[in-house]
C-alpha cells in the first residue's frame, strides 16, 4: 500500500514538474516575442504626475494584452488614453491594451500612456527609471526608461 502511494505521489510530482516546465517555457517563449522599444518618461517633480511611453512589439502569432503596470517611482500606476473633443483635450483610464499578433502598439504623447501618479521623487532629465509591464501571456516585463522631455527622433516636426 505504501509502495502504491509512493508511486502515485512520484507520478503526480513528475506531472506537476513537467506541467510547470511547459508553462514556464511558454511564458519564456511569449516573453521573448514581446519586445519593448525606446521607453522614456517625462521629467516630474516629486509629488506630481508623469507618463511612461514606449513601443511594444508582438512578434508572436498570438495577441497579447497589457493589463497593468507597476513602478516604485510613483504611488499609483495606471494605463490612460487621451481624447479630443473640439479643441479640448482630456484623459481617461483604460483597463487594458491589446497588442495584435506581429504588430506594434505605440504608447506615445497625445495617445495612450502608462501614467505614474504622485511620483515619490524628482525624475530629472538624464536619469533613469524602472517599471514593470504586465502582459496576459508574456507575464511581467521590466523596462528601464530614460527621463527626457520629448521622444527620440521626433524632433518635434510639425
Amino acid at each position: 500500500m505504501k509502495y502504491k502511494i509512493f508511486v502515485a505521489a512520484a507520478i503526480f510530482f513528475l506531472l506537476l514538474t513537467n506541467l510547470s516546465i511547459v508553462y514556464s517555457q511558454e511564458i519564456e517563449n511569449s516573453k521573448s516575442k514581446i519586445q519593448i522599444h525606446d521607453p522614456w518618461i517625462r521629467p516630474a517633480a516629486q509629488g506630481s504626475n508623469t507618463a511612461l511611453f514606449f513601443v511594444v512589439e508582438n512578434k508572436s502569432d498570438k495577441p497579447d494584452t497589457i493589463y497593468s503596470a507597476k513602478s516604485s517611482l510613483s504611488e499609483v500606476v495606471e494605463i490612460h488614453e487621451m481624447f479630443k473633443k473640439g479643441d479640448m483635450m482630456g484623459m481617461r483610464q483604460v483597463e487594458f491594451v491589446v497588442v495584435l499578433p506581429n504588430s506594434k502598439v505605440e504608447f506615445k504623447p497625445r495617445d495612450i500612456h502608462v501614467m505614474l501618479i504622485k511620483t515619490k521623487k524628482d525624475l530629472k532629465i538624464g536619469d533613469e527609471g524602472e517599471a514593470v509591464l504586465l502582459f496576459k501571456n508574456a507575464g511581467a516585463i521590466k523596462v528601464k526608461a530614460e527621463i527626457r522631455d520629448m521622444p527620440k527622433m521626433n524632433g518635434m516636426k510639425h
Binding site: 499609483v76 473633443k85 479643441d87 479640448m88 483635450m89 482630456g90 484623459m91 483610464q93 501618479i117 504622485k118
Partner: peptide, 19 residues
C-alpha cells in the same frame, strides 16, 4: 474630468481643457 482618489482621501483632478 477623471480623478484619482488615494486611501488618505486626497483627490487629484484631471481637467478636460482647451489645448
Amino acid at each position: 474630468g477623471d480623478s484619482t482618489v488615494f486611501q488618505s482621501g486626497e483627490k487629484i483632478i484631471y481637467y478636460v481643457h482647451t489645448d
